[in-house]
Design a protein around this nucleic acid. Structure first.
Lengths: 153, 153
DNA sequence: CTACTTGCAAAGCCTTTGCAAACTA
DNA sequence: TAGTTTGCAAAGGCTTTGCAAGTAG
């Protein structure tokens, strides 16, 4: 079994900040705060969750600002958007495409970036269908190890 | 390369009809028409597309009715819902979980149910993460064979 | 005849947008 | 100072829901 290893949040923060500067964005205190939250981004938060957390530091910040900053990071491929039935979750710590495992009982979202098939699936798709993959979204719903024990009774 | 083989739409229609009867649903002409469209469901239509097609036969039908009938079929696992960034597409012909390949140029949605890794991925997830998969949603965006030629110049 | 189904319109949810005021560089 | 960013509120797209009228069994 795999232990989830995170990228260093500080490095992620610096990288994102640099990208924003590169494109000539103004660096506001709200953006700095949000970038820190996103670089950390434990548990794949939604925009609303990021907003709630950011509001603890900046009570006047708005949800629109959160969305606008996320939009910039998406363009720079500095944040990964996970599309869950009309609600987006974000991973700014590992902004590359990887599968996610979602526990239907406790709601936990596990990064599935250690699957061997992850390395071969795109090639397989090209071999079988002649289709060239650019992006992917793989979500698996089921029971995490802990919740299986609860259910097994 | 794989030729997409469809299930017999008539068989699918009968199966769905039987399931609705089983649960004591009333069989209305609108539902019969919609079931036929869904059993056929070329190209993974959206609710709005099914509605437009159904309206040709039944000009007074409403979009709400389409959604309500789809909801029933979902509960019976007789229709597969594909979640595309806030818009749902439906496959009532092959209502089991399978990957989809979406061409970002022409918009075509290809069934990816002939991939070898499809058979092993759930086991792999259990081996690596101890996670028991119940449902999945695998969407790959990229270029279909035809559109690659256009782009290759 | 009874209970389910329908169409309509309104509401819901998340996300995006328009705009004047505020702020970064 | 000039141009970006902000918060607010409204709008947008898709889906769901409430309800009285209509219909299947």
């Amino acid at each position: 079994m795999i232990i989830n290893n995170k990228t260093d949040p500080e490095l992620r923060y610096q990288k994102m900040l640099a990208k924003l500067r590169e494109r000539g964005c103004r660096i506001t205190s709200h953006r700095i705060g949000l970038l820190h939250l996103i670089a950390e981004s434990e548990g794949h938060p939604s925009a609303a969750q990021l907003y709630e957390r950011l509001r603890l530091q900046f009570p006047t910040v708005s949800l629109a600002t959160v969305y606008k900053t996320i939009a910039l990071l998406k363009q720079d491929n500095e944040i990964l958007e996970i599309d869950l039935h009309g609600q987006s979750r974000y991973d700014g710590n590992k902004p590359f495409q990887h599968p996610h495992l979602i526990c239907t009982r406790c709601g936990q979202i596990i990064d599935g970036d250690a699957l061997p098939s992850m390395l071969t699936i795109n090639q397989q798709i090209e071999d079988v269908y002649g289709f060239k993959v650019q992006q992917q979204q793989q979500v698996f719903y089921g029971l995490c190890p802990k919740c299986q024990q609860v259910t097994d009774v």
